[in-house]
Nucleic acid binder design. Structure first.
Lengths: 243, 243
DNA sequence: CGTTAAGTTGAAGCGTCTCAAGATTGGTGG
DNA sequence: CCACCAATCTTGAGACGCTTCAACTTAACG
């Protein structure tokens, strides 16, 4: 993420006005400390859709909170295949490491235009020392990310394609709902067949067949940048058959 | 883990004599603090081979350092299938959570007889307050575990069975080597076909065919509780074809 | 309206699973 | 020391799920 992407300081938005905070590091509750915390922020960055936030192997200067937009964390394999590890939504913390200076083990690419809030390793250190509760929260965030990864590993390793897709969509819909998006209506859904396929370990072609089935059964439709959840219960039932 | 498993206090071994510390939370370097740390230890437990340390959904009272033996962390799916998340070796930290009181999201079962060192949530809290460096180390341990999980997810999601097995064995052999086990000789290897198959997301029957091929090509042999690495380079080459 | 990216569909091939029978190993007791 | 047993591992054959390739359709965009 280079200097060109940086949002001019004057037009940066404040943590106080951020509606993603519920899911983010600076969760609501301690508003008095917010200005202090915001002072440690290195800046906000705009990355256009399809842009690389960082690549696997990069030495990161910052960790990022995704403020706005959709991004994907992924790994590339030697044969060119891609495993999507995580679909990042507003509030998600990305690029957090125990040891800065060590190369990061995954890449991040934006799916839509995205805004990121950057924190340098030192400023994070400062914050953690000043406010021990932030350490607990960071711990919690990392633990939750690990848990999500284990869950994904379990169903990618053990479930058939249809159930993987149902589980993936169920989890994603839950996260959208928690962010106040009403998925009983049609919603924007920028993931392509390829993105989803790479997340659950199947090919886009096969995913297309599974999607056709889910659509035919009036459960869910997701394509052309739209998501229509017709029968969430049926989707959950399908997902629950295998985890 | 119940009271019956507890090793009598008199016969407990000291952290000072522990040769797994290099891989554990109390890594070498601060020997002066060791007695203080050890005082916070809730005890040592012996779990016989095939025993459950805890089950998915349990509310844990302790986190554990595996002092001796082999154990596996896994998740069970609704259809009865099992995904092995991690093969725990001496020094590995297990059951560490951000929020005790929340159910744990995976289970742990011993493969061989194992000794665990238990730490209660409060005693961990005490240690972390007393020694900030322990917090950094805990962070590091969790980050490493997450990274391992992402790596596994990537190759389980994207690689063919043969390469998954090669990668799994390569990583395990590396970890054994780092623990001072000379894998150029025959070594004890308590994992069954089923354990390995569940770790890489294939069936034991198919794993058997792959193992037969690796054996026929004089690369590696692992069965009947033994591991013989004949050509580590060839194994690594095979693994590298896909990650 | 034309162009491009994204998604769909069919047919054939391959990889993995399933089921079942047989072989090998380690442990136990005669 | 050998016979037997249970657990583990192997092997074959057929079925199934997923991939591949290629042609086609649909949507988004200037």
């Amino acid at each position: 993420m280079n200097q060109h992407d940086k949002i001019p300081v004057m037009t940066e938005s404040s943590c106080l006005d951020c509606d993603s905070r519920k899911f983010a590091w600076f969760e609501p509750g301690d508003e008095a400390h917010l200005p202090e915390r915001e002072k440690q922020r290195a800046g906000q960055y705009l990355v256009r859709a399809g842009g690389n936030v960082f690549m696997e192997g990069d030495i990161l200067d910052y960790a990022y909170t995704l403020k706005q937009g959709w991004a994907i964390c992924y790994k590339l394999l030697a044969n060119g295949q891609r495993q999507v590890l995580h679909v990042a939504l507003a509030g998600d913390f990305i690029g957090c490491q125990a040891n800065y200076g060590q190369p990061i083990d995954y890449a991040v690419m934006t799916v839509t235009d995205c805004v990121f809030c950057a924190f340098s390793a030192e400023s994070m250190q400062n914050l953690l020392i000043a406010e021990p509760s932030l350490m607990r929260r960071l711990f919690e965030i990392n633990a939750k990310q690990s848990e999500k990864c284990r869950t994904r590993l379990a169903y990618v390793g053990q479930a058939q394609a249809k159930y993987r897709v149902a589980l993936f969509l169920t989890h994603l819909i839950e996260r959208l709902e928690r962010r106040g998006i009403d998925t009983s209506q049609m919603v924007e859904f920028p993931l392509t067949r390829e993105d989803i396929a790479d997340a659950v370990g199947i090919t886009a072609v096969h995913l297309s067949r599974i999607s056709a089935e889910l659509r035919a059964r009036n459960i869910v439709e997701c394509r052309y940048n739209r998501l229509v959840v017709t029968d969430l219960d049926a989707l959950k039932t399908l997902a629950a058959e295998l985890i």
